[in-house]
Design a protein around this nucleic acid. Structure first.
Length: 899
DNA sequence: TCATCTAGCACGTTTGAAGAGT
DNA sequence: AACTCTTCAAACGTGCTAGATG
């Protein structure tokens, strides 16, 4: 893990860490507050969260051969995706529906993990619903700060996560760029893709273990402030218990409303009799027997009480209620086709409380879920469209995360069938990664890492859910990050380290104990303080399908990101099959796909109704979007690339890079983020992901305001500007990357690699268009043409700085972050809630340091310096809004730098 | 004029406190 | 005193709609 000591520059930070950290909400009971030291952290952690005894840990890594995530309510998601999922976003924040529920397997029971949810843009386009179709109408708006929702149970042991359905239903989406709640900020009428990240961690403060990213193509959606497609509205009403009142039987149904109005008009005094049917899906919350043997019998109750997972109602209800609607019928037919539908239950509203107990959804959601417990690996075919092929019925899709190590990806998914397996790439696993893992750079070649990793789900034909399996480096401890540097780095004992200081406390001891993994390495990133360790999540992009349509679910370990060599980035054959989604794939696809043609999407991907992105792909999309190609190249080859390449018209990209590099070098507090993961990844796949190593180092570009020369990070006090809120302020970005849908907001930077934090500076290219686009960015051709330098491939990961020697500014470009793909990397900042209460641990003074800004989540940055393997953390504070503790915490990458 | 967003509404669900019972 | 169960009200989640905004 990271030790403050390691980074002198961080020392300052320590003092301020407290300040930096802020919690919007009270941390969940289990969530440790900001400990001043590791010990503190340990104390704060609930017993179950505490790291297992060393002895056990040794075994940990071994246990995790493959981390698999199954999307439990796949069928429901598919139902929506076939129509074109729309997610309402409001200023106050709106939950997602369908909820994102997953079942994780392959975790080391003893190790602790943090589960995160982030949402990345699929492409760089803006959509409009016309003629019953979503059509691209222009370039996406500047990308907003990425925020990550940390599951409230985090950190928790692998056992904990594996024993229940994990629901992210508490995550909220907002279109309020100034949101202080920590909600995930999205642009309306843009297409996004949800991703789930599994990060090993000793505790909240120390992240750095292997990271696995899982993308489910079915979860792509277009954000709206008001539903555009009636079909979606009906599906939501029929599936969401909270909308029960709007069902045909409900008091708020059109029929009832109209009747009321009529009555009022005609018979003001009368009341309308309501005919309420018992059909509500909600009622049917019970777990339906899952037809498929595949489906696991386990039922989980969702907190929300939605039975979404439960097979059943939705479909039924739909049929019953939605008599009128075409889509319904169509869906119905589909559903019927899907033999299983166990998931239909999802639609059903709530599972009874009773079930909850049994299910134990993490979120507290009690919803019952028909999990399909498929562990089978799906070959990570890149095919985006996994969905289509897959019958809705399938409960879950399995995806294997791409392990850095890499599995092979069979391009095609084994089964189009519902099950989609993907191997996740364990970014972090480097070391951990098994032999295989070593995703060496070579392996890193996009293909290798990503694709290869992907497994086919072939196994179960019916797998309900799509599971993703990250391919793990089996042997190694997952934990062990692998960043060599880390290892080398002296790691202070946990105690020694003040959480406050570094925010990065590193337990070397623990680490070591743990997997024997290099203590340090293993968890490079772990930031303690909540530091967000900033995971730069690999942009899902790749995974995302460029095609809006549906990227296959993909699991990306960060390492995985590398690209898509896999292949097929472009087109994913089966909807079901998840392409690992790597952005890459999508990219190509996107390019190909015409804007509006939903069909394509459908066909390829999950049948996602959404028009394929015009994309960014180089190919070009007609769309205004930026050309992706450059990005792709960059991403892939980032390391190699010259900074110049990145130049932004507006802002000289070069600077950004330079700055970044500088920052990193300096260990500037400011914005360099190191991703633990990235770090690990880098190690793992040195070559493969260019970024990985360096990337980690990459600091975010200073704010545009910053004069040309990027000041050393330290100098750069980014303090205020950057809050995500600031984002709007950054016009440049948009300009720079007009096309890019998601230009990064400076403030947030969340997505943007830290370095790019400054919008102005960020080279448009760097931010390559949306991930998907990114994928597109990395078209195969590109890949082929431009072999990704080892290491470079990972563009997305900022990776472990530690692993690599300090990056020369020039090299910066190589960093994943810089890469197009990189843009999507979200920096993870620990959500305040997760953070130990600073108040307690930190000196009051620290607080004063903070800007008036409401709050920024903490952010950790890694120091690019070679010497520092990790480092910098930037802490950001988010407004403290108190919400229910129970709600998950959000990390905001964009936060201001603490220093 | 159109597309989009917002606030308020009504309905239903969820949550947690308070009270009663064991 | 501790625990369990029930009740109930507030808070929350949802889609709808009219109006505002650009």
């Amino acid at each position: 893990m990271l030790g403050v000591e390691m980074y002198p520059s961080l020392a300052l930070a320590a003092q301020r860490l407290g300040d930096c950290c802020y919690r919007d909400r009270e941390p969940p009971a289990h969530v440790p507050l900001y400990p001043t030291s590791c010990d503190m952290a340990a104390r704060s952690l609930p017993p179950h969260l505490l790291p297992p005894p060393p002895a056990k840990r040794d075994n940990f890594g071994k246990s995790e051969d493959v981390i698999k995530i199954e999307l439990e309510n796949v069928s429901l998601w598919k139902q929506f995706s076939t129509v074109g999922t729309e997610m309402i976003i409001t200023k106050k924040g709106r939950r997602m529906f369908p909820q994102l529920k997953v079942k994780v397997s392959g975790l080391n029971p003893s190790l602790r993990y943090i589960l995160l949810l982030d949402i990345i843009p699929v492409d760089s386009f803006r959509y409009r619903f016309q003629d019953d179709n979503w059509q691209v109408v222009g370039g996406a708006e500047a990308r907003l700060p990425d925020r990550v929702f940390i599951h409230p149970d985090s950190p928790a042991t692998g056992e904990h996560w594996q024993n229940r359905t994990i629901s992210f239903h508490r995550a909220k989406l907002t279109n309020n760029t100034l949101d202080g709640q920590g909600y995930i900020i999205l642009h309306s009428l843009h297409k996004y893709q949800a991703r789930v990240h599994v990060v090993e961690t000793r505790d909240v403060m120390m992240w750095g273990g292997a990271q696995h990213t899982f993308t489910f193509p079915e979860t792509q959606f277009i954000t709206v402030t008001a539903y555009q497609n009636n079909k979606i509205t009906e599906l939501k009403i029929n599936s969401n218990p909270f909308a029960k009142g709007f069902r045909e039987n409900g008091m708020n149904s059109k029929r009832q409303r109209e009747a009321r109005q009529k009555r009022k008009l005609t018979h003001p005094n009368q009341e309308e009799p309501l005919d309420i049917e018992s059909c509500d899906p909600c009622d049917s919350t019970e777990v339906l027997p899952q037809p498929m043997g595949l489906e696991s019998t386990t039922l989980s109750l969702s907190d929300s009480g939605f039975c979404s997972d439960v097979p059943s109602l939705p479909e039924q209800t739909v049929r019953q209620h939605s008599s009128g609607r075409d889509f319904l019928t169509s869906q119905m037919t589909q559903m019927s086709e899907m033999s299983e539908i166990p998931e239909s239950a999802e639609n059903q509203p709530q599972s009874t409380s009773n079930n909850e107990v049994n299910n134990g959804l993490l979120d507290g959601s009690n919803q019952m879920m028909g999990l399909s417990t498929y562990t089978t690996y799906a070959a990570p075919s890149i095919t985006p469209s996994s969905h289509l092929p897959v019958p809705l019925s399938e409960p879950t899709a399995l995806y294997s995360s791409l392990s850095s190590t890499q599995t092979d990806l069979p391009s095609s998914h084994s089964n189009a069938t519902s099950v989609q397996n993907y191997s996740s790439i364990a970014s972090s696993h480097y070391p951990t990664m098994d032999s295989s893992s070593p995703i060496t750079s070579s392996s890193t070649s996009p293909h290798d890492s990503t694709h290869t990793s992907m497994c086919h789900s072939s196994s179960s034909p019916h797998l309900p859910s799509s599971s993703y399996h990250p391919i793990l480096p089996p042997q190694e401890n997952p934990h062990t990050p692998t960043n060599p540097p880390f290892h080398s780095l002296p790691q202070p004992s946990c105690q020694s380290i003040n959480s406050c200081e570094s925010g990065l406390t590193v337990d070397t001891a623990q680490n070591q104990a743990i997997g024997g993994l290099a203590s340090s390495n293993s968890t490079p990133s772990a930031v303690q303080d909540s530091t967000p360790t900033a995971f730069p999540f690999p942009p899902v992009q790749s995974s995302n399908n460029p095609d809006s349509t549906t990227p296959p679910s993909q699991i990306l370990t960060q390492t995985a990101f590398p690209f898509p060599t896999v292949g097929h980035p472009n087109r994913q054959p089966d909807s079901n099959q998840v392409s690992t989604a790597f952005t890459f794939n999508s990219v190509s696809e996107s390019t190909s796909t015409p804007l509006n043609t939903p069909s394509d999407q459908d066909s390829n991907t999950t049948a996602f109704p959404f028009p394929s992105q015009p994309s960014n792909t180089n190919s070009s999309t007609s769309l205004p979007v930026q050309t992706i190609a450059p990005y792709s190249l960059q991403t892939s080859a980032t390391s190699h690339m010259n900074p110049s390449t990145y130049q932004n018209p507006t802002n000289s990209a070069p600077r950004s890079f330079a700055q970044m590099s500088l920052n990193s070098i300096n260990g500037a507090r400011s914005q360099v983020f190191t991703n633990p993961i990235a770090n690990s990844i880098s190690h793992v796949v040195p070559g493969s992901i260019s970024n990985s190593t360096p990337a980690s180092h990459i600091s975010y570009p200073l704010p545009a305001s910053i004069p040309s020369g990027p000041p050393p990070l330290q100098n750069v006090a980014i303090p205020n500007f950057a809050s995500s809120q600031v984002v709007p302020a950054l016009p440049n970005i948009s300009q720079v990357q007009p096309n890019m849908t998601q230009s990064f907001s400076t403030s947030t930077l969340s997505n943007i690699p830290p370095q790019f934090a400054n919008t102005s500076q960020v080279p448009s290219q760097c931010f390559a268009p949306m991930p998907t686009s990114t994928s597109s960015l990395l078209p195969h051709s590109a890949l082929q043409n431009h072999p990704i330098p080892p290491g470079s491939t990972h563009t997305q990961y900022p990776a472990t700085s530690t692993a690599y020697a300090p990056v020369a500014p020039s090299e910066i470009g190589s960093f994943p972050q810089l890469n197009a793909a990189a843009p999507y990397l979200t920096d993870v900042v620990l959500h305040p809630s997760l953070l130990p209460s600073l108040d307690n641990t930190l000196p009051s003074s620290a607080t004063s340091l903070y800007n008036p800004f409401p709050s920024y989540p903490l952010r950790l940055c890694q120091d690019p310096r070679s010497s520092f393997h990790l480092q910098l953390r930037h802490i950001y504070r988010q407004p403290q809004h108190v919400h229910a503790n129970s709600q998950g915490s959000y990390l905001d990458l964009a936060g201001r730098p603490a220093f």
